[in-house]
Simulated assay, not measured.
Amino acid sequence: MQRGITYYGSGARLRAVAHKLLQGRRVKVYTLGGSVTASAALHPRGLSYAALLFRFINGTFPNRMQILEPFNSPSRRAFEQLIRRLLALPGRPAVMLLHHYAWWMSKGDGLWGGLFYKEPEAQHTTFAHYYDLPSVSLRAAAWRLMEAGVEGFKVDKLLRPGGLNGATKKPIPVADEGESNLYLYGDVGHPEVNGQQALAELLTAPLTRAVREAAAGLTLATRVDDRLGELPPPMIPKNPVGAASVCAMLEDFKKVVTHRSGFQFVAHRPDAPTFALQKWRWQGNRPGDWVEMEVNTVAEGAHRRALATVMLVHLRSYENMGLARVECVEGCACPPAALDTLWRIKASIFYAFAHKVTQHPRCRLRVTIEDEPGRAQQQAHKVSLTGLMVTH
């Protein structure tokens, strides 16, 4: 675990959390990430790293009022803006960066898996240095174990079929029944039980260090100077946090649609226990299908003359996806743009497509499925929209 702590920093905010835990006070713990955090491919989900981390905190520092909630949420500028939003929340939360490592997706420089320096981890760790955030890394902790084929960290087989070895163009072997405890990954991108356990233990390492420091009464002297703000300026030049005026997700996104032809509001997993896990979306499947969304893009105050950014959240995947045209049809103005929901990466994620529009209280945008393939040249046309945001 110590090898996996790639940066600890001053630990000031984490020690503040540790003091609360030692005093038996309630803390709130959230996980923010993608499919690994949501344990999308893991069964049972109670063995996800988030669940294991929460179990560790509740078991080590019991408090019947503890609030532990996972929730989910991709470009470096957006990543920095997310960090700044989190650090500016009331209560000065302690933010930690957890770096997952997908062996079979880490390609480059002649390797079709296991490339150690595959981005974006190094760039994300730079944000940890800049913002004084503890950072832990599965790659730093376990890459040598993976490469050597140590039991529990073996990567030459997966637990589920579907993975492709880029070097041989052949399927990656699937582990036999009874071998699951030897392997780290369920598929090419997601850790199985062993991997989730490793991620959870990595997160406990900085926390237990902070607890030891807090128990020992360790404090760090901080320089007091009026020129030093709570946060440094953005690390990336000209990257301020925009004011978000609209965030329509889940049930709220259904209400944004005013007119449609062919698009339907459907669930990807209708039998899942919650609305979020059912993965509802506005979906069209044929060329000519269209959907119109109406939203207020007007900013308050000084940003009134600037363009607004509409972020369309959509499914991006490697098969059966299509190309669409995005255009402003009423109220606001914008140049038409192509929305390509297909790519060659063997992964399915929700992706934010950014489009500049003029400000108007009733800006209507239309998304129309085109009768042509995207860059990946597949003859399919599905377009799935899952959310809409407006920033300034």
Results as ranks from 00 to 15, higher is better:
N239F: 06
N239K: 05
P240H: 10
V241A: 07
V241F: 12
A243K: 15
S245H: 09
S245G: 10
S245L: 13
V246A: 14
V246L: 11
C247E: 15
C247K: 14
A248V: 02
A248Y: 06
A248I: 09
M249Y: 15
F253A: 00
K254P: 05
K254T: 09
K255G: 05
K255S: 11
K255E: 10
V257G: 08
V257P: 07
T258S: 14
T258C: 13
H259D: 15
G262D: 05
G262T: 04
F263T: 04
Q264H: 13
F265R: 10
F265M: 13
A267T: 07
A267E: 08
R269A: 11
P270D: 09
P270I: 03
D271E: 13
A272I: 01
A272L: 04
P273T: 01
F275R: 09
A276H: 00
A276I: 09
A276P: 01
L277Q: 14
Q278C: 09
K279C: 05
K279T: 07
W280S: 09
R281C: 14
W282Q: 01
Q283H: 05
G284M: 07
G284T: 01
N285I: 06
R286T: 14
P287M: 07
G288F: 11
D289I: 01
D289Y: 02
D289F: 02
W290T: 06
E292P: 03
E292M: 00
M293A: 12
V295T: 02
N296D: 11
T297K: 00
V298M: 11
E300D: 12
E300Y: 11
R304K: 13
A306Y: 15
L307D: 10
V310Y: 03
M311V: 08
V313T: 08
V313K: 09
R316G: 10
Y318L: 06
Y318W: 10
Y318H: 14
E319D: 15
N320R: 15
M321H: 01
G322I: 02
G322A: 05
L323A: 12
L323P: 03
L323V: 06
R325L: 12
R325P: 05
V326K: 01
E327H: 00
E327Y: 01
C328Y: 00
E330Q: 12
E330M: 11
C332W: 02
C332P: 01
P336Y: 13
L339C: 02
D340M: 07
D340G: 05
T341D: 04
T341M: 08
L342E: 06
W343Y: 12
R344S: 14
R344Q: 13
R344H: 12
R344V: 08
K346I: 03
A347E: 14
Y351L: 10
A352N: 07
F353G: 04
A354R: 13
A354Q: 11
Q359K: 00
H360C: 08
H360Y: 02
H360K: 04
P361D: 10
R362L: 03
C363F: 04
C363T: 01
L365R: 02
L365I: 14
R366Y: 00
R366A: 03
R366D: 00
T368K: 04
T368G: 01
I369R: 00
I369E: 02
E370H: 11
E370K: 13
D371V: 10
E372K: 14
P373V: 05
P373A: 12
G374Q: 01
G374D: 03
G374P: 00
G374T: 02
G374K: 04
